[in-house]
């Protein structure tokens, strides 16, 4: 009798206490970094441990934000602004992080087929930036003059000294095409040991970590539908949903930063060869593990004619792309079918 009784007791206590061991989803929206809004969520055992991760994340995010800031200077920080204002005079010593990013950009930009993403075209991009602020097209002659100072080979990176030098003093760096993707990789490294099951979005630049801990096998990441294109599936303004773990998703599109003049849209992704916004696609989403590469490729494929983009993405193992063509039609590489809601994939 006593044995039966103890057995019952254990059983009852176990049943009562099981539910409280389950991990819950916590989330936070963070403002003030990378000129966008950051959404961060993850599964962990308490609000306290989530807050602790958030604190470390925010600390790293602040550092990266300042490092890649081209508009402001910070005391004692050789950030992008500092490099742009002093590397024309003498080599500037920079943090390993900034040096590493520039080196990665240089290596990729040298690769045949990858040339169109040029972080050394800051002179051209700032003319377009000012034009969008003022709502008028940039001056054609000014653009022509600016293109004379966009030669990446004039950016001299010294590996041993970790210095950056502009052999052309008028050249300017603009990291807009890669900074958020690269930052996402660094932030992932900060979070993943402490809370492996997480998702972070830097204004649409998404990284999803290990599987959610609520019974689902995958995170669901939606892709926003460009205006004028028919949304599919769940309704609302989603174009599709991808179910992924340990994967980056980055979208480049014509529908977020743009101005309209005489009914024509001028967005922010500028073709270095024409100095005008590229019009091959409405949007392209890249899915691959590395955030920097995903960010780089999304800009690159947006600048390429559709067929060239398909050929290029198919040459990269474990990378896929979703395209919204100029006429509004939607296609994706075959390897994405298995993770796309529109092709029957689920989170389970």
């Amino acid at each position: 009798m006593k044995r039966l009784f103890s057995f019952l007791l254990v059983l009852i206590l176990a049943t009562v206490h099981l539910p409280c061991q389950a991990e819950e989803k916590y989330s936070k929206t963070i403002f003030g970094y990378f000129d966008t809004v950051v959404s961060f969520m993850g599964y962990t055992d308490s609000q306290e441990s989530f807050d602790a991760v958030c604190e470390e994340l925010t600390h790293e995010m602040k550092y990266l934000h300042q490092l890649f800031d081209g508009y402001n200077s910070y005391p004692g920080q050789h950030n992008l602004w500092y490099v742009n204002h002093h590397a024309g005079e003498a080599p500037v010593k920079v943090d390993d992080v900034l040096f590493d990013l520039l080196q990665k950009c240089q290596a990729l930009q040298k690769t045949p087929g990858y040339e169109k993403v040029n972080v050394a075209m800051g002179t051209v991009l700032s003319l377009w930036h000012n034009a969008r602020e003022e709502g008028a097209l940039p001056d054609r002659t000014a653009l022509q003059a600016a293109t004379q100072h966009t030669d990446f080979s004039k950016i001299i990176l010294n590996e041993e000294e970790k210095t950056v030098f502009f052999a052309d003093p008028k050249i300017r760096l603009d990291l807009g095409a890669v900074a958020k993707g690269y930052a996402a990789d660094r932030l992932k490294a900060v979070v993943e040991d402490k809370m492996p099951s997480f998702l972070i979005s830097l204004g649409g630049n998404v990284y999803a970590g290990d599987a959610p801990l609520d019974g689902r096998k995958k995170w669901g990441v939606s892709v926003q539908c460009p205006d004028g294109v028919t949304p599919i599936q769940f309704g609302g303004d989603m174009l599709d949903v991808f179910y992924v773990n340990r994967m980056s998703l980055v979208t480049s599109g014509d529908y977020q930063r743009y101005m309209e003049i005489d009914g024509k849209r001028y967005h922010h992704i500028i073709d270095p060869d024409t100095c005008m916004p590229a019009n091959h696609l409405r949007a392209v989403t890249i899915v691959c593990e590395n955030g920097f590469l995903a960010d780089y490729l999304s800009t690159l494929l947006f600048l390429l004619p559709y067929e060239e983009g398909v050929t290029l993405i198919e040459s990269i193992p474990d990378a896929g792309a979703l395209f919204v063509l100029a006429d509004g039609s939607v296609t994706m590489t075959e390897n994405l079918h298995a993770i796309a809601y529109s092709h029957g994939a689920t989170a389970r």
């Binding site: 959404s39 609520d214 669901g220």
Partner: peptide, 27 residues
Amino acid sequence: THILCLPNRVDVELLVEKAENPDLPDI
């Protein structure tokens, strides 16, 4: 579940129980 005001750094969020449909996206 959010309404965001970026300039004022305000985020208004509806706290809801986990969605019935597990295939709804997280973001």
